[in-house]
Design a protein around this nucleic acid. Structure first.
Length: 766
DNA sequence: CGTGCACATCTTTTT
DNA sequence: GATGTGCACG
């Protein structure tokens, strides 16, 4: 129950609202800090969400700004929704006017408002990665490149990386091409941009980059938004990428009322371009920033925290911080060894029932975490057999399913007729006899005339394509136009129903009686339900608004914490959540930590942070499990136990029989140092802090100075020793040979940029 | 010209 | 175990 309600009369307010009472000193400090840059280093379970919500409530309470002048950027839609609800509880309905959401959703909102300035229209399409891949694929085909040798996905990955670094096609091809793949990507890049533009479409990256372009081209607009957003808050700041960094810098360069919250130990999205140096350098960017660490953990037992700490200590690059808790010591963590993944799933299912009974818990108190989505399958089987209700979060997203993408492509075409990509997706879906050759001709015509495909097929009769296909396309055009008409006359749901009927899209599934087609039909019906719900509940029930909404939702957002079901999700998906009982499964080498593909380095430190995130989700009980054999690539493979199990503090970990686990300390790689614990420190558990801050330099490894990389090339991820700064990790490298410079994060000295030529760096691991 | 079937390939994490 | 590609047929 909220203990504070905003009064609307003229009564004098106390200067400090009563909702601040439940906060600890540091939290209170963070909430009451209103103006100027603020960096909150929030350890896992330290009440971060609470601080953020109270801080916003306080800003409103102090009348520092109207709700719509506050911009709060979160990592998931769900986090935004929950936070907003909590602020509504604290200060009332006005909180609904906050600009609160993910970077992507907030900036797409701004982009729709300002679309004309960028030569787009406000009903632009948003392409997800599958759409992007298709666009890239057509471009590759046009360039006569074999899409089997050069995978669109890899090209997209390179282009996306460049975009997020704000590197233009020109700069990219001049300075960043080092392989034939990059050369191809460089050539596709420019065409890809042009194609998206022509389609009046933006991809996920554009949603972050276009605002920067917008503000650079129109300083007056930048000024407008700078003025408008009096306060900016960013959650999960350790996972922001360069583009996100740039756009927030632009917006805050005026009043500098920026508050970021994050935890470098929980940075797990570098594959998506997240740049940990954003948070590490915050105080350099904003020299008068106040830094508040939140180190008291309210979530977990001492045993769990100690375990987490013993793991994360193996990372070289981290900000020093010491989490502590007043919670009980709690039970030891149990390691479960299994014969194979079926065994693993069955044992976990059985244990869940047992613990649920013994501890009088509900299924909703349990979470089973894994590294990759495909691991969920066996678990689902086991749970179904045992009659355990579960909710699977993530996996193949509903809106990514083929049939759903087909239908949304139809809808996108209705809203944005210039969207060639969507047209290509549905022109022969269901099959109406429009083949490859026809499309080739139409595409040629479109290119020559600068028109969209939709415009071209308006006069399909004069295109000179294969005669029998003309009426088929004519029919397609007619149906689309009729649907267009319907949209004006009847509601959204009825329009879509009409479309599905007339195009025969659902009919194809009814005629075919395979298991597959039944599922697909169900999914389409499910989409229809979603549309119907949207139409009833939204205050702007337009088709465009619906498409906007679904283009940015993820399955993570659908997670229901109230549902009495065991949660199954990836470790990534679990960030920000907590459960009384957590199982971390598949703790095997090449799975967790994941094994890289050939020629690809795996960032073990990031894997370790991910493991740390997973551990710190647990409140009371934590289990680690691994299988000695696992089915992968269609065959059974012998697995080795994860090195992480050699790193955990054996004082708080037990086998199923209660024995101490055997550990191989040498399994830790050089650079990932292990610092031994006193066995009895775990049980002592001092009231304030269970850990002493560690300030010794890494021990137990042989140090050889003047040890250069074999090939003389420095790479991010390498562990180094500097005679003065001590142990560090290479974050960034630029230049070659004599000119080479490296950015290194030193555990004891922070981040430094060094000329390799002068700095006496020694390589101690990679 | 377009379609349907058999085959291989490959699964990291997500806005 | 799903999705994309290659090949033979209508």
């Amino acid at each position: 129950m909220p203990d504070f309600v905003l009064k609307n009369d003229d009564e004098q307010r106390p200067s400090s609202p009563s909702f601040l009472k439940g906060l600890n000193g540091r939290q209170k400090e963070a909430v009451e800090h209103t103006d100027g840059p603020l960096l909150i280093i929030a350890g896992a379970g330290s009440g971060k969400t609470r601080v953020l919500t109270y801080r916003i409530a306080n800003l409103l309470y102090q009348e520092k700004a109207y709700a719509n002048q506050i911009l709060a950027l979160t990592f998931t839609n769900k986090a935004a929704r929950e936070m907003k609800d909590r602020i509504v509880d604290l200060i009332g309905e006005q909180a609904n006017r906050l600009w609160m959401g993910t970077f992507h959703s907030i900036f797409s909102r701004i982009l729709r408002i300002e679309a004309e300035q960028l030569d787009y229209t406000r009903n632009f399409s948003i392409y997800d990665s599958v759409d992007s891949d298709r666009v890239i694929k057509t471009i590759l085909q046009e360039m006569n490149i074999n899409t089997k040798e050069v995978k669109p996905q890899s090209v997209r990955y390179i282009i996306s990386g460049a975009k997020n670094q704000l590197i233009t096609p020109e700069t990219f091809s001049n300075n960043f091409v080092q392989s034939s793949m990059e050369d191809i990507a460089a050539r596709v890049y420019e065409r890809y941009l042009a194609r998206c533009k022509k389609n009046n479409a933006m991809d996920f990256d554009d949603l972050l980059i276009k605002p920067i372009e917008l503000f650079e081209a129109h300083p007056n607009l930048l000024h407008k938004y700078q003025e408008h957003f009096r306060y900016i808050l960013i959650d999960e700041y350790q996972d922001t990428n360069h583009a996100q960094y740039r756009v927030t810098r632009m917006l805050t360069s005026g009043n500098q009322n920026i508050c970021v919250v994050g935890d470098d130990s929980q940075s797990i999205y570098s594959f998506r371009g997240a740049d940990i140096s954003n948070i590490l350098n915050f105080q350099e960017d904003y020299p008068n920033a106040v830094r508040i660490p939140l180190e008291q953990n309210y979530r977990s037992t001492k045993a769990i925290l100690q375990c987490a700490d013993s793991v994360i200590r193996n990372n070289v690059s981290r900000l020093d911080k010491t989490l502590w808790t007043r919670n009980d010591q709690g039970d030891a963590i149990t390691v479960i060894e299994n014969y194979d993944e079926r065994d693993e799933a069955n044992r976990i299912a059985r244990m869940i029932d047992e613990i649920k009974m013994r501890r009088n818990l509900s299924y909703r108190d349990f979470a089973v975490l894994y590294r990759t989505n495909y691991q969920s399958r066996v678990l689902e089987d086991a749970f179904r057999r045992r009659g355990i209700t579960y909710q699977l979060v993530g996996g193949v997203s509903f809106y990514q399913r083929r049939e759903i993408k087909d239908v949304t492509a139809y809808l996108r075409l209705l809203v944005n007729s210039g969207d060639d990509e969507s047209l290509l997706r549905v022109i022969n879906e269901p099959v109406r006899g429009v083949g490859e050759k026809t499309i080739l001709i139409l595409a040629q015509l479109a290119r020559d005339s600068g028109k969209s495909l939709w415009d071209v097929i308006q006069n399909v009769e004069s295109t000179g394509i294969y005669k029998p296909t003309i009426p088929r396309i004519r029919n397609f055009v007619d149906v689309m136009q009729q649907t267009q008409q319907k949209l004006q006359e009847v509601g959204l749901t009825d329009t879509v129903r009409f479309l599905l009927e007339e195009t025969g899209y659902v009919k194809q599934f009814i005629e075919e009686h395979s298991h597959d087609s039944i599922m697909r039909r169900q999914n389409v019906m499910e989409l229809l339900n979603a549309i119907s719900f949207f139409e009833k509940s939204s205050n702007t029930p337009s088709l465009g608004a619906f498409l906007q909404e679904i283009s940015l939702v993820t399955d993570l957002d659908a997670h229901d914490t109230e549902k009495p079901a065991v949660t199954l999700m990836t470790a990534h998906g679990s960030k920000g959540l907590e459960f009384p009982v957590v199982y971390i499964t598949g703790l095997e080498e090449d799975l967790f930590p994941i094994g890289g593909r050939v020629g690809e380095e795996v960032d073990v430190e990031e894997e370790r942070r991910l493991f740390y995130v997973a551990i710190t989700r647990a409140k009371k009980l934590l289990f680690f499990s691994y299988a000695k054999n696992r089915f992968r690539f269609g065959e059974q493979i012998e697995m080795r136990r994860s090195r992480f199990l050699d790193e955990v503090d054996s004082a708080v970990v037990r086998t199923e029989t209660g024995a101490t686990i055997r550990q191989d300390r040498s399994a830790s790689r050089p650079g990932s140092t292990y610092i031994a614990y006193d066995e009895d420190r775990a049980s002592t558990g001092s009231r304030t802090s269970i850990f002493q801050p560690e300030q010794t330099s890494p021990t137990g490894m042989s140090i050889e100075y003047d040890n250069m990389p074999d090939d003389g090339v420095w790479r991010p991820g390498m562990a180094v020793i500097h005679p003065k700064f001590g142990a560090g990790k290479v974050l960034q490298c630029e230049g070659r040979g004599e000119q080479a410079k490296v950015t290194v994060f030193f555990k004891n000295a922070g981040q430094k940029k060094l000329m390799v030529k002068f700095a006496k760096l020694s390589l101690i691991g990679s």
